[in-house]
Design a protein around this nucleic acid. Structure first.
Lengths: 215, 215
DNA sequence: GGTCAAGCGGACTCCTCGATCCGCTTCGTC
DNA sequence: GACGAAGCGGATCGAGGAGTCCGCTTGACC
């Protein structure tokens, strides 16, 4: 993106690039975004300069991996959409998305942090939203999902479910299933009581994230 | 605690101690636990050495403030217990606890982080649990709250509600009300469907947090 | 196989942040 | 008001992390 020429990398450079990406993905997933670049370089088996040669900054590396995860998230939403039952599809989508965040601590942290500091990545987040939206609409149409929740609400709940369980190797990794199930019970039309405050629109989020409105 | 003698502080020292505590509370609340000690000292209008003279480490300062917040949380639970209606009391307790976390970013982060790194503070957390427990039991007895959730589940949900809204000054500060309401709808007996995994016991949490079991 | 730009990695710089040192100041007491 | 201990804060240290430099190596192409 920042490089002007598209000349392909030398084979060893390309190999190292992939090693770095894999090492970084693993490191971020395990320890979160706070791992040092030196740690990542060590895991990849390369010198730290090599990391910086491919990714001009830590931010760039985080962004690269974040984009991968977003793509994964979108893929799971599309997979879920293939299910015949609207509610089952909706549930599977949320479960997969929760699992993705629970398994990858970096991704979990990034969804807040990266968006806060890199408004240009809002478009990626938007694409997840667009991928999940049809599932939400279909579930609503089928009368399986209450009408007064937005896709943004629903995505937030996956984060919520993951956030409320402690990430300890001594506790089960799918602890999010329990809070998520509680939330799903609250999402059924029969359970609905009026919500206390209006939904936040996507435009409000964009504005709050620093996407400057014109004028 | 670490000081042996209980000789009272000199008046200026006592005043500075309070200034530091107030500054730290404010700083942590606004920016989270990552604020620097220098920043806190500046806010308090004292030199950084003064901060360290009263609190031997940043950890100690965080712990001191964490203990204050825990006391607040317990107080709100007890306040809520005074309400006649079991469900209303339960809801108010969760709302106040959510608000406390939403208003104080440091407290929000601390509930994870401090406990992870300071198992000795588990007892404080336990006291919150014990304060909320009667409210949960009463709501269950009254048939207002589903039977298969634990107090630990319920406390987790407050964290969840706060976690899923972005902490931006441009978005409403009580955004947690909406997810919390959804969760409350899922907590009513009528909404209940079987939970997918068993509850985590408090003992499991203690063990995972590093409270070493005997033997 | 020879050439050379591309690539490499470890040492290095710079900076932030927690924590300490030390000469000066202030409170409390007589 | 004199005195000593307690307290003060700016200067400083040390660890750790992001990012750079530079002499050596290696892959690509003839």
């Amino acid at each position: 993106m920042t490089e002007l020429s598209q000349r392909p990398l030398r084979s060893d450079a390309e190999r190292n690039r992939r090693l770095v990406l894999e090492a970084a993905a693993q490191a971020f997933a395990e320890k979160g975004l706070d791992v040092g670049m030196a740690d990542i370089a060590r895991r990849a088996g390369v010198g730290n300069a090599t990391v910086f040669r491919r990714f001009p900054s830590k931010d760039a590396l985080v962004k690269a991996i974040f984009e991968d995860r977003i793509a994964e998230a979108i893929a799971t939403a599309q997979e879920a959409a293939a299910l015949a039952d609207p509610w089952a599809a909706f549930v599977q989508c949320l479960e997969r998305y929760s699992e993705l965040q629970a398994r990858d601590r970096g991704f979990f942290e990034a969804s807040d942090q990266v968006l806060m500091e890199h408004p240009e990545l809002m478009s990626l987040h938007r694409r997840v939203l667009d991928a999940v939206d049809p599932l939400v609409e279909r579930a609503k149409q089928a009368g399986a999902l209450r009408d007064d929740v937005t896709t943004l609400d629903v995505l937030g709940l996956t984060k919520a479910a993951v956030a409320c369980v402690l990430p300890s190797p001594d506790l089960r990794a799918d602890g999010w299933r329990r809070p998520l199930a509680l939330m799903l019970d609250g999402l059924r039309p029969a359970a609905a009581t009026p919500l206390p405050i209006p939904a936040t629109s996507y435009e409000e989020v964009e504005q709050a994230m620093g996407v400057k409105a014109s004028g």
